[in-house]
Structures are given as C-alpha cells and as structure tokens.
Design a protein around this nucleic acid. Structure first.
Length: 861
RNA sequence: GCCCGCGUGGUGGAAUGGUAGACACAGGGGACUUAAAAUCCCCAGGCAGGAAUGCCGUGCCGGUUCGAGUCCGGCCGCGGGUACCA
C-alpha cells in the first residue's frame, strides 16, 4: 500500500501551480476582483510559526475566493526599513542593506515551500529604491498640498552616546547601551497634519462595518474627541508678558471646586520663571529627565513646585489659587495648563493631599448613599460616569440634579454667556512626527539652502538614494548617531532652486510611512508613479485585511490618513478613503517556556529540543525543569518554534492544517508538537481513505448512499459558512466529523468518490497539496485550484424531526423527538408526558410551559 | 496610570440568550500482532453510586431573565496598545 508522502506531492503540485501561473493576479472584465492582504512581515531572517498562521488564513480566503470566481490579488512583500538592521550592523559589522536583503532571501526560501497562493511577481521591499523613491514623490506632493510641516518636538536624548533613542531603547529611564539617564530634548522635526483629519477619521469609523468593534473603539478613544471649556485665569503680578494662564478643561462643571492651577514644566510661563529661580530650574530639569512615553510620564510620581504666583478665580476676584508647575501636565495636550479639582480627580486629590491644598466637592451622589465618604473627609475622589445623575452642591449652571454631561454643557453655556470662556472641541490625536535621526529609512527628499531655506528635491532627481559607502569606505555603524550626518559627499549637494551649495536633510522617515501605502503599491508595483490610477481603480480597496491586534491603532490609523492624503494628491481614487473594507485581527502563537534557575535564582531558558518532557528534565544535565505554559514566543526565552523543522518532518499541509485547527483565529494559539503529529496522522488517514476509494470497482453498489450525501451537503454548507466567517477551527472540526462518517460509510463507489472529492475541495484552501493529490486520484477535472467551490444542495439540508430538550425550572430533565412542525400544544403535551419530567415535577402543577419551536421546552413550576 | 481584549475538563477548544464540554490532544481499556510500531473500536468534567440517577460546575461576587459561558455592574488574573519596536 502506498503512503502519504508530503515531500513528494507538495513539490509536485507547487510546480503545477507555478507552470499554470495559477496565482497571477489578472485584470479581466469578465470577473469581479477580490484583494486579500496579510500585513507584510519585517525581514528578521526567520519565519515564525505566527507568520505561518497569518499567511495561511489569508491563503484560505484567497483560494476560496478564487474557487468562487473572483480575480484574486494576494501579494507579499517586506517592511524592510527599521532599527534591527542598524542594530545588527552595530553588533556584528556588515551593512544594514546586505543584512536586510540576505534576510529577505532566507525568508522567501522558507515561505515558498508552504505553498501559499501568492502572486510573487508583485513582491517588493520598502527599502527598494523603486519603492522609497515613489514614497519621496508622495511626500513632496503632500508637502505641496500643505499636509506636511516642521515644528519642534521632544525626543529621548542619550547624553553619553549623544544620540536620539527610540522608546524601546529607554529602559527605566536610562539609555540601553550607555546606561545614562535619558533627557527629553527638543528638535525641529517633520510632521504630517493628521490632526486636521481628526474629525473625519473619527466619523468614518462608523462606516467600517466589517472591522472588529474593539479596533474601532480603540481608534475612537485614541482620536479622543472631547468637549470642554477654554478660559483664562488672570495672573496676579506675573512676570512681564504673562498676565493670564490659559487653561482647557473637560470638567468646567467642577470650577467651584478648583484648588490650584497646574502648568507643564515646558509651559512658556514655567520657562520664563525658571530664568530667575534656580530651584524651579532644577525642578524643571528633573521633570525633563526620563523617557518621553505616555506610560513613563503617567506612572512617574506626581510632583509639583509652588511658583508662589497666584491667579484669581474667574467667578470671584477675591478667590486666589496657587500656581504649581507639575510634572504630569503635558505641553502637547490642551494648553499645557489645567486647574485641579481634587474632589473629582484622583490624581488631583493625591496632589492636593501631598501639598496640603483645599478639597471641595462640587457634586455628591444623587441619593445620599450610606457608604459614600466625601473626599474632604478622607474618601476617594468621587468620579462617577458622566452619564450618571449627581447632585450639584456647588453648581453654578443648570439643575441641581443632572448628569455630568448635562453639567458640562450647562457650565459651558453659562461661561460663554458671561464672557468667561468658550466651548471648545479638542482631540487627543497629535500630529504624526515622521522624522527619525537614523540611517536605515527613507530619506526625506529636501535640501536646506542658506538663501532659499527648505527646498524640495526635484522629482526627476528622485530617488534620493541612501549612500552605501562613505568615500569608497564602508559606512561605520559602530559610532552612535546617524551616519548620514557625517557623510560629507552625500550630505553636500546643490540647492534645487538656486544651484548654490546646500545640505541635504539627514532625517529619514518613520517606518510607519513605508507601511501606510504598500497596499496601494501592490496594485501596480512597477509603476513609475506611486500608483497607476486604472490599477488602483480596479484592485482597491483591500477586501480583506488580516494582521495582528498590536496594529489596531497606529498602523491602521496612519494608513487611513495616507489613503485620504493620496486621494488629495491624486494618487488614489476617492473610493479609497477607507482602504480596508474588512479587517480581521488574529491572535499570537504561544509556546511553553522550559526553565531552570541558576545559583542566583535567575531563570535559565532551554530550547524545546533540549528538554525531555517525559521526565521533565534537561537532556544534557538531568536538571528538572519548570514549565511555564502559553507564553508569547520570544527568542530570549527560547520558546520560538521554527516552522521549517515542522515542514521538513510533516510537510506544509500539516503545518497549515494545525495552525488553523483547534484555536479560533482571533485568539492566541498554543503550539504543541503533539498537535502537529495529530494533524499529520489525520491527513495521512484522509489520503489513505482516498486511495481505498480509488481502488474500488467502479459502480459497486452499497448501503446508505442517501445518508452519506446528506452528511456531505451538510458539511459543504457548514464549512462554507465557517470559511466565510473566519471560523476555520470550527470548519476543521466539521471536516474531522465528515471524514469519520465517510470512513465508516458503506455507501456505493460512485457516492463515496463524490464524497471524497467534495472533502478534498473543502480542504483545498487549507491543505491544497493533499487536495490536489486526492483530486487527481479520483479523476477530477483539471487542477482543484481551478475547480469551482462546491454548493450545498438545499434538499439534503432539511430535517423532518427535531430533538427537543425539556427543562424543569431551567434544569434539563429529558428530551423528546418530535416532527419539526408539530404544534406547540402537542409539543407541550409530549414534553409533560416524559417520565423524568413527571418525576422532577413530583406532583406539582406547571405554572407555565415555554416552548421555543425547534429549540427547547421549559416547564416552570 | 490610561485605553482595548481575554479567562470553559488533565490540554487546545465547541456552544444565533435555549441540552455546557462538539471536534481534537494527552490518558485508560480492548482488538489485530510472536512482540512492538502503525491502525481500528470503546471509555472519559468533578463528587456520590454497582447502576439508574442525583448534586456541583464556564476566574470571583452580585444582578436581569422562564432560562446566562453568552447580557449588565463590581472585583481578581493574564495579554495587546500607550504616538521613535514592527
């Protein structure tokens, strides 16, 4: 008997697909199009089992849509700029470019054997000059359209290495290499005006019907529209040029509970005051230490400095409040100044208690709750949801009892009417800083000229290419900082406007720029311009986008912005404003960690192949291991599973089948070697089953043809539904069940052959090589990859009888089988006559009998 | 800190507000075999019981409902994001 040998059949069918160009994306008038895209990978050098899962899901959709008569675009590329390439060059010499392209070659070589239905002819990497040159053209068009500008912004500055650090390079406020305390420093940087589109990006979220609700919610919260009051406190004896402090508040209804004014250490007033106040200067300098992340700022201990200045309350000129500089107030949000109301904000309360400031409640729970302790008396800050009704004890506008939202609105109206301030709508979303002081990124194509200022490079001079060498010598990456800064032959150029000597911009672009339009470039990867309209018109939008939840906010929001910007600059049609029609976010692949402890109690990690799971010991030393289940795969914890080994041992179809089975795609999946083994066994079984059926004498009669057909059509229906709804794991469970049914069936040869062909077709998107082999064995027409998707025959789906569970007071006590359309009162009678139900009733008379047709009967006593 | 998720047997997980544990893995029992591997069949949430069956059970506490894994409120734990990781 022959055996299932993936190594042979997988190579064979991949060759057949390649020969027939089965996955080449073609524009033809006779078919609708379908664009399926997985978030492209960073070329780390090794594919990861998580990639296999991501691309397999996309491939299932792509092959399924092809079978349903679509022209499918399913491309692949690489998000190839970024820090790891420079880090590698720093750590072990070499050049980021060589490192990156070598990694891409390696990853393609690892991906090809998986048999993904990709149009490889469209592949590109974002570090290809053909790609980033067009990105530079796009940048210049955006600059011209007023979507780009320069302003100062803070970066993490390492004072020892004299370089800018990424947030992940700041560990506990210190530089990762130098260990020096990081400072926040201001630089002039390039920005995209994404905040101009805040309202539009927020409103359009409602049109994204096929996006996960959680992603839409996260984006809406990130954009953060708020309604508040902007007004000023007049400053008593302020320094020259400062007679008031402008504040923004989303809680003007708490104005009568104000106890202090806080300003950011970067506020103009704070900067003015520190000139004559060494203590304040020291305090501000201390505040400017540490990283720039929101997390670091929020978690830092809340500290303040009393400036000694005082302001007048806008409603009562006799009421004075102290002005503090506080480290938790951001210059970037609002006006960089706030008033603190300790009674209704825990952070302000902590601050007030620390500096002995007054605490005054402006509202209390509507109905006096016994358990309520006002913050004045040592309780927590009272912060109910804004939708909840509260009783204003120090209100000044609107009803005494109203919701927080009503309180805010009436307070704004009152303040506007009395000339105290204006109602203002603000967004949390900040403009997108794209400048990076690094080498391995897309150069920003502008020139700095002493006479002409900042001048765009001419489009015919694009791409502004990254220099590979420096005066004939390899660029030295061992020195911290941006090599472009110290590269005279590259940096010195002539002004495109006046022709005089000038300097190139040495900042490169954030890699999020690269990934914000690659999906559009895939529609015409060889175009001279960023996109070609007729291709974009045909292939856009992406019908199904698949990627990790970690990109829920930034990548997706930036792409939405770019799609709009590309329309404004004439690179995309208007219909592409929202470029991703449907989004699916898949979970991570996790794996157990095997660890021991060293003599100091620190964990030591071991590779899965180095441990014996039977005895739970390290093979080499015999030490017993501790097993930490389900941890995110990470190289440092040595729990990364390399799919290459799995493919070598079991074949691509097994790897594909396993990553789809068991776990719902949106959830994290635990990789276990036993699971892969089981998947392989099952595929072998299906293959053998096909061989047995192929060996049957044609037209051999049997019993149960109708039952098998019934099961087959039901499976076609359920699997189709599963694939449509990303229920791959559920679809696979149905395929298991149908395989069991088919294996046990005594039906005739003709029906069995029909059934195994249907099974192969249903499995084809998941295990395409095995499916082709079975199809060929059963004499199927052509390649299965070109066969139309099977359709379930309705007449086999209807059932005549139905099993109804019977509950008594919500507890299941028995069941009855009845005709599907039996009237309710008959069902009720049948249900009550069941022995177990009578026993459970124990003589009691039912008060009510609830009959849910086709579902359940509940007898209420 | 803030925003968003997730939590079901020994394990992965299934379940339009309607029989909790489908389908698998690991495990136990059996068949085949000189034997093993492979394959096939059966059992299997926990507790009690020979069984029939009963009670308990979807992280914890409470609520809505005839009925809650599912909806609502409050906790606990884990994960993602937090604007220079990609």
């Amino acid at each position: 008997m022959a055996r299932y040998t993936p190594s042979e059949i997988e190579a064979k069918w991949q060759e057949a697909w390649e020969k027939t160009e089965a996955f080449k994306a073609l524009r033809t008038a006779d078919k609708p199009k379908y664009y399926v895209l997985e978030m492209f990978p960073y070329p780390s050098g090794r594919i990861h089992i998580g990639h296999v899962r991501n691309y397999t899901m996309g491939d299932v959709i792509a092959r399924y849509k092809k079978a349903n008569g679509f022209n499918v675009l399913h491309p692949m590329g690489f998000d190839a700029f970024g820090m790891p390439a420079e880090n590698a060059a720093m750590a072990s010499g070499g050049h980021p470019k060589d490192w990156t392209y070598d990694n891409i070659d390696d990853m393609v070589a690892q991906m090809k054997p998986l048999g993904f239905g990709l149009d490889w002819s469209r592949m590109f990497a974002t570090c290809d000059p053909e790609y980033y040159g067009r990105q530079q053209a796009l940048f210049l068009d955006m600059l011209e359209a007023g979507l780009v500008y320069r302003k100062n912004a803070v970066v993490n500055w390492d004072p020892v290495d004299m370089t800018v650090l990424a947030n992940e390079q700041v560990i506990d406020g210190k530089g990762w290499r130098s260990g020096a305390e990081v400072e926040r420093r201001e630089l002039t940087q390039w920005f995209f005006k994404i905040s101009d589109m805040a309202e539009e990006l927020l409103d359009a979220i409602d049109t994204l019907d096929d996006w996960p609700a959680k992603v839409k919610l996260m984006q809406a919260n990130w954009i953060g529209k708020s309604r508040g009051l902007q007004f000023s406190f007049s400053l008593i004896d302020g320094p020259e040029g400062h007679d008031r402090v402008e504040v923004y508040t989303t809680r003007p209804d708490t104005l009568m509970g104000a106890s202090f004014v806080g300003i950011s250490p970067d506020h103009p007033l704070a900067k003015q005051l520190e000139k004559d106040n060494a203590d304040l200067a020291a305090f501000n300098a201390e505040c400017r230490k540490g990283g720039t992340t929101e997390e670091a700022l929020e978690k830092a201990e809340k500290k303040g400095f009393d400036t000694g200045l005082r302001v007048r309350h806008p409603f009562d000129t006799a009421w004075e409040l102290p002005v503090y500089v506080a480290n938790f107030i951001l210059m970037d949000y609002g006006t960089g100044a706030i008033f603190g109301c300790p009674a209704h904000d825990q952070r302000d309360l902590d601050f007030a208690r620390k500096y002995s400031l007054s605490v005054v409640s402006t509202y209390v729970p509507e109905a006096g709750e016994d358990s309520f302790t006002p913050p004045e008396d040592g309780g927590e800050a009272y912060v109910p949801p804004k939708t909840e009704k509260v009783r204003y004890v120090k209100g000044f506008a609107g009803d005494e009892v109203q919701t927080g939202n009503e309180g805010v609105e009436t307070a704004i109206d009152f303040c506007e009417a009395s000339g105290v301030g204006q109602g203002v709508t603000k967004f949390r979303l900040r403009d997108w800083g794209l400048s990076r002081q690094r080498y391995w990124g897309c150069p920003i194509p502008v020139v700095h000229c002493d006479d002409c200022g900042v001048v765009s490079e001419k489009k015919e001079n694009l791409p502004v290419e990254l220099p590979y060498d420096e005066d004939g010598k390899p660029i030295d990456f061992s020195i911290p900082g941006n090599p472009l800064d110290r590269h005279p032959s590259w940096r010195n150029t002539t002004c495109p406007s006046c022709g005089k000597p000038a300097l190139r911009e040495t900042d490169t672009m954030d890699t999020f720029v690269d990934s914000s339009w690659y999906f559009a470039r895939f529609t015409s990867p060889d175009a001279e311009t960023p996109t070609r309209m007729e291709d974009a018109e045909y292939w856009m939008n992406v019908d199904q986008y698949i990627g990790g939840i970690e990109h829920a906010i930034l990548h997706l929001l930036y792409s939405r912005f770019f799609a709009r910007a590309m329309h404004i600059t004439g690179h995309l049609p208007a219909k592409c404003a929202e470029p991703f029609n449907a989004l699916f976010t898949q979970g991570m692949v996790t794996h157990a960690i095997y660890q021991t402890k060293d003599d100091k109690g620190r964990p030591v990690y071991h590779l899965p192949e180095d441990v014996d799971l039977e005895t739970k010991t390290v093979k080499a030393t015999g030490e017993s291991i501790e097993i930490v289940p389900s941890a995110k795969m990470s190289k440092s914890k040595k729990n990364v599973v390399d799919p290459v080994n799995i493919i070598a041992e079991y074949g691509a179809d097994t790897a594909r089948w396993f990553v789809l089975s068991d776990s719902p795609p949106e959830r994290d999946v635990e990789w276990t070697a036993a699971g892969a083994e089981a998947a392989y066994k099952h595929l072998s079984r299906v293959w053998s089953l096909s061989e047995k059926i192929a060996d049957m004498v044609p037209d051999t009669p049997g019993q149960g043809d109708e039952d098998l057909l019934r099961a087959m059509h039901k499976t076609i229906f359920e699997v189709t539904q599963g694939v449509e709804s990303f229920g791959f794991n559920a679809a696979i469970a149905k395929l298991y069940a149908f395989t069991n049914t088919l294996a046990k069936s005594t039906a005739g040869q003709a029906v069995k052959s029909e059934a195994i062909k249907a099974l192969a077709q249903l499995m084809a998107p998941m295990t395409p090589h095995l499916a082709e082999d079975i199809w060929a064995m059963q004499g199927g027409d052509g390649l299965i990859v070109n066969a139309p998707w099977p359709v379930a025959d309705e007449q086999f789906l209807v059932e005549d009888t139905v099993t109804l569970p019977i509950q008594v007071n919500g507890k299941r006590r028995g069941e009855i089988e009845v005709a599907k359309d039996l009237p309710k009162d008959e069902v009720e009678k049948a249900a009550l006559s069941v022995d177990a139900v009578q026993r459970a009733l124990d003589g009691a008379t039912p008060k009510k009998v609830i009959v849910v047709p086709g579902r359940i009967v509940n007898v209420v006593v």
